[in-house]
């Protein structure tokens, strides 16, 4: 019998110009139209969460990351069809640009990957993986290893996009409760 001790570490740094897109799949306008094809306009609303709202999100286990969010309200005439939020998260070392479409019932309607830059893990783009989010709302776990299946070899990309979707669902719900998107 023996006891072995091991410490292993892996650190990666990246230096990438902010405008660098390895593969751009969709523009912001294309993604918004794809999610709400019936929408005639997408009104851009700047939302600022106050301290109480941020604390409420924190109590739900959601780190809002910023108090300031930009939400596009999909409209047909006077009717609100839903909301679209664009965001970036880090995959392993590079940014993933994505968009979340939320229906008026507060549940995810669709997510789209706008740009993916990593060497591995492009599978977060696949429709089958993205479909897992459809219908999930503020009451859902929206966590890899819970209600969202991981992609082998792309754990960090999956985890960070999933965390981002959970954050956006919670932020839009909080903003609507506060009357900011009425």
């Amino acid at each position: 019998m023996r006891v072995t001790l091991a410490a292993s570490a892996f650190a990666v740094s990246a230096a990438a110009p902010a405008s660098a897109f390895a593969v751009d799949y969709l523009s912001i306008e294309q993604a918004a139209k794809l999610m709400f094809p019936d929408a005639e306009t997408f009104d851009v609303r700047d939302v600022t969460l106050d301290a109480a709202q941020l604390q409420q999100l924190d109590a739900q286990g959601v780190k809002a990351r910023s108090a300031h969010w930009s939400v596009r309200v999909a409209k047909r005439g006077a009717n609100t069809l839903g909301f679209v939020v664009f965001d970036d998260v880090i995959g392993k070392v590079e940014l993933i640009s994505y968009a979340v479409g939320i229906a008026t019932d507060g549940n995810v309607k669709q997510i789209e990957i706008l740009s993916y830059r990593e060497s591995h893990g492009f599978e977060v783009r696949l429709p089958a993986w993205r479909r897992q989010f459809v219908g999930k709302g503020a009451g859902s776990a929206i966590k890899v290893g819970e209600d969202i299946a991981n992609i082998s070899g792309a754990t960090l990309s999956c985890t960070h996009v999933t965390d981002g979707v959970r954050r956006i669902v919670a932020v839009v719900a909080a903003a609507r409760r506060g009357g900011a998107l009425a």
Binding site: R2, A6, A7, S8
Partner: peptide
């Protein structure tokens, strides 16, 4: 070769 292993790893 029977053994107990203890490890600490990190990656970023």
């Amino acid at each position: 070769l029977n053994r107990v292993n203890l490890g600490l790893g990190w990656s970023f």
